[in-house]
Design a binder for these strands. Structure first.
Lengths: 241, 241, 241, 241
DNA sequence: AATGAATGAGACTTCATTCAT
DNA sequence: CATGAATGAAGTCTCATTCAT
């Protein structure tokens, strides 16, 4: 399947239907079902997605569904993995030529939202999976987290990270994932549909992950605090001194 | 109601039932229903929570439910607001004597997880509400975000924040909310139940919000980058270089 | 009870409540319930009349209902008899000074519709009773029919009726009742509410009961036919010859 | 469908079930449901007819019901139209060779009761529809009334009617309908079941619609009155003078 | 394999009646 | 007696899954 929810050239395919081998046809139906399910879940959520809706959309009979999937749940369990793989591939291609860790994270961050724009259904498929396809959700989160850990470890070894211990890598990854989710929820959705993330949100994201948010209070009088203080002066923008 | 889902000393109360006035009894039943609903949603999620389960748990007849709530959905819509208010109160009491913004955020952060430990059902009630009580969810999120904005603005005016423009306050709030959610999801849940957040996670959280994660690359050669560089030297801990 | 559904001077009575004896109060509540039931049935029909609606309207508690009536059905069973008696009384007063049978029937006919205008709820109370208070309905119909039989017999003995045998009296009564019902249904109802019967309908009614509808065909060549023929000529109005 | 409520040779059909095509089977089930509903409504009334009763009687699962009808109400709304059409067809066939208007009305009148004997359930289906399928009821009544108007107009144009103005046609139709209903109610029902209408009732009906009931009093001294007087003498049967 | 109708468990909700105060 | 909340039986409808063709 090229794309779970891709609005593939159905007509073309249908016209060729006669020439399809048995296996091709079988594959085509499976894809149709997955695609129909993805679109429906994207629009209505898992809870409101009925087998009858999926099959109607895929233009097959209800019974056919059960020739391809054990149950509705079985399909749900495959939805996120398939689309998730696509997403990872999509992002991977973008970050290929990033030089620094920060740059890479920025590209990845943007790519995520670009993917979402291309696959608006992904938002619900992903975030509702915690409830309706918990295993798939866990796997996906693990995969993403592992990816982060790998990436962060490399960066850390190059001194590009404010991190002391290896054990901080995973939590850091989850924090970044949480940020992504919430910025997505708040700034990349409109009337239940995915839209592009405003550019300035990207900037704010960048600042958080580079500069943090809070300045360390004077009282601690640490070297770090001093450095931060100087940074605040240099960077300007602080309201008072 | 002391607590929506408080596993109050039911037996004791029941024994006193005879002395309850009508109004007290009415209040008691409403509380029982809310409490039963909260517990059930906390354990099974909104989707698997049936009126019959709630009433069985509250030890009343099914019909009684509808003397107190218009519909199952009506109760669902009240679940998060009630518990959410409690949570806010709980946190507010803790942050009363925080001096700096950072300290305040830390206390608030910890308090959230303490509340969760006390009310393990809150996790699902809160995060599944996006699906099953969308209005309540939105309201809650707005409330929290507004709280953050207020708090952050004050901090910002005191120069305790790395923020240039007021418009960054809200996104910043959402990012912090996202972090909280994901740390909660990953580190404060065990077998579907809420557990305490490990102490070291708090530390990592603190670092992120103060120092950020990534160091700015040399190439940009900005003042901020320099400062950061010096900080990295002073603070030590960077593995490489 | 002066009137089942009479919009009696409630306020007045309430003001006097303190002076009511126990029995008066009891009577007042019963009347209120009957009245509330009558209005509700008149507006919504028996099927949609709930005990809670009745008691709310009568401004008493639900439980009070069962101090006055065995069950909802028991009240339903009394509704038609009470209002039916009123109707009969109302009509009886009007026909007191009719001289001929025809005149009497006309007055009675008109009085029925006048009563209906005064008690719009009577339509449903009466005609839905066939379903929801069958015994009361049967009794009512029997009563009306007996009244007709008595009246018709007298008229017949005076030679004012085209009837050969006593056994025709009852069916004749029922036919008149059916006519009344259907003219009522079709011409004295507007948007589910009772309205006045147009005057010309009364005229048509009169003609039917005096002249019949159909002229007897020539072929029978009976004396009656001849007479009728002459009547047709005299009365004019036949379109052709 | 041959007949909505026809107690068709089910067993025979079932034995043939294997040979039924899908469409036939589908039609068979729909018929079974309609038939079961008709019988049940005929016996118990709309109010006491439950989906479970219908499906049990039709020997299908409850869910099957909803493959054929949107809701219970939807079926109710179709019950009268379907059976009503049958009734009209039944009557139409009978009146084909009536020569005079009076004869035609007599045949139609009798045919109605014959139909009722064949379809005892029709009584409740028809007359309870005013409450439980109001639109269908109104439509049916309109149809019947229009039929009457058409028929009466023709008769009137041939001079077979005692009517002066076209506007009297419709009310006349309704009066005849009302008579039919009440004679049916009183004389063609026994223990809630439809039975044949006694022959002498037909005679009484005929007299009413030809001769009317009341004789016009002398005082008016009109030609019509005189004619009627002579008729009364000629026809004999008046009890005395 | 495709079809699409049949199945039936199970959820929500209503409301007459009961009952403790 | 009045109150009004509690009760629970009963009914409608949904939809995942099965099954005969």
């Amino acid at each position: 399947m090229d794309s779970v929810a891709g609005s593939a050239p159905r007509e073309l395919r249908v016209r060729r239907a006669r020439r399809m081998t048995r296996e091709e046809k079988s594959q085509f139906i499976r894809d149709s079902l997955m695609s129909a399910a993805a679109m429906t879940v994207g629009e209505q959520g898992y809870a409101n997605t009925m087998v009858s809706t999926i099959t109607a959309r895929a233009k097959v009979a209800q019974g056919t569904f059960y020739n391809y999937f054990e149950s509705k749940q079985a399909l749900f369990d495959q939805l996120l993995p398939e689309l998730g793989k696509e997403m990872l591939q999509f992002i991977r291609e973008r970050i290929a030529n990033a030089s620094t860790a920060l740059e890479r994270e920025e590209i990845s961050f943007k790519a995520f939202f670009d993917f979402l724009k291309k696959h608006p259904e992904f938002y619900r498929i992903l975030y509702e999976a915690e409830l309706f396809a918990p295993t798939a959700f866990r796997d996906h989160m693990d995969t993403i987290a592992r990816g982060y850990v790998r990436f962060l470890r490399t960066a850390w070894e190059r001194g590009e990270l404010n991190i002391k211990d290896e054990s901080e890598l995973e939590p850091t990854g989850y924090m970044l994932m949480g940020i992504r989710h919430y910025l997505c929820m708040q700034y990349a959705r409109k009337d239940g549909k995915s839209v592009a993330l405003p550019e300035h949100i990207v900037e704010i994201y960048k600042r958080l992950i580079t500069d943090g948010i809070f300045t360390v209070p004077e009282t601690s009088a640490s070297g770090a605090a001093k450095a931060r203080q100087s940074r605040a002066e240099g960077g300007g923008g602080g309201k008072g001194v």
